[in-house]
């Protein structure tokens, strides 16, 4: 049995801070959409992938029917008045055990992500964190678990810069996501401390983030 039952990718948001007029998962970086890069990253690990759509859903539905017919599209018809946590809850349909939840605007380094998933196999809740770098970071305070010696997340902070920021992906039971209008990290805060494993991640929220992500993808291409 796979340690993770499936993945839910939240792609319903407006992406208004980036202002490109299309869902962020549909932006091409390094010649491939972010969505295709995420699906390719997840494929060796999960058989079931749910993609939650809202803003300009027809673009993603058509794209998936041609390039990723095996994914399940979940519609968030209330994407304008709900947030990512609601999309992730809708996307959990048919899942009951351990699910990987991700934002659809992430470019993720494969090697460090594999380390994260291996770590997540043994934990109830595992949070993705990355070196702080994005324009509007949610910082995380970390510490070392006295029993296992592993890194753990102890708090989220908007205004207190730390080494790491919240990377907008995590592994958890669907039961953790309840209805409400909180941000995802706010939904997870009551369950801290939680296991973590730093991953190299670039989130695309603003034009500056996109430039950074493109530069990183180009540097990876040159390296390989």
């Amino acid at each position: 049995m796979y340690p993770i039952e499936g993945a839910v990718i939240a792609c319903a948001g407006l992406g208004s801070r980036l202002g490109m007029g299309l869902p962020k998962c549909m932006i091409e970086v390094g010649g491939q959409t972010i969505l295709s890069q995420l699906i390719s990253l997840l494929r060796p690990w999960v058989t079931r992938i749910h993609v939650v759509v809202g803003y300009r859903e027809e673009l993603i539905i058509d794209y998936c029917s041609r390039h990723h017919p095996e994914v399940v599209i979940v519609r968030n018809g209330e994407f304008r008045s709900t947030n990512t946590a609601h999309s992730l809850m809708l996307g959990s349909i048919g899942f009951s055990r351990k699910v990987l939840y991700l934002d659809g605007d992430l470019l993720i380094d494969r090697e460090s992500f594999e380390g994260f998933l291996e770590h997540a196999a043994g934990c109830e809740l595992t949070l993705g964190i990355t070196q702080a770098k994005s324009s509007e970071a949610v910082y995380v305070s970390t510490g070392t678990d006295s029993d296992s010696g592993s890194l753990e997340v102890r708090g989220f902070h908007r205004d207190m810069p730390t080494e790491y920021e919240w990377a907008n992906f995590f592994v958890a039971s669907p039961a953790l996501l309840g209805p409400g209008s909180k941000y995802v990290f706010e939904c997870l805060a009551p369950f801290l401390p939680a296991a973590t494993h730093p991953v190299e991640v670039f989130e695309v929220d603003t034009p500056e983030d996109l430039d950074r992500a493109k530069a990183w993808v180009n540097s990876q291409a040159i390296k390989n």
Binding site: V72, I73, I93
Partner: peptide
Amino acid sequence: TIIAADLVINHPSSLCTLLKAL
């Protein structure tokens, strides 16, 4: 049908896996 739907599924295997999991 998409407008009336909660889910859009294009593959029989994905459909049956989900139906069994509901």
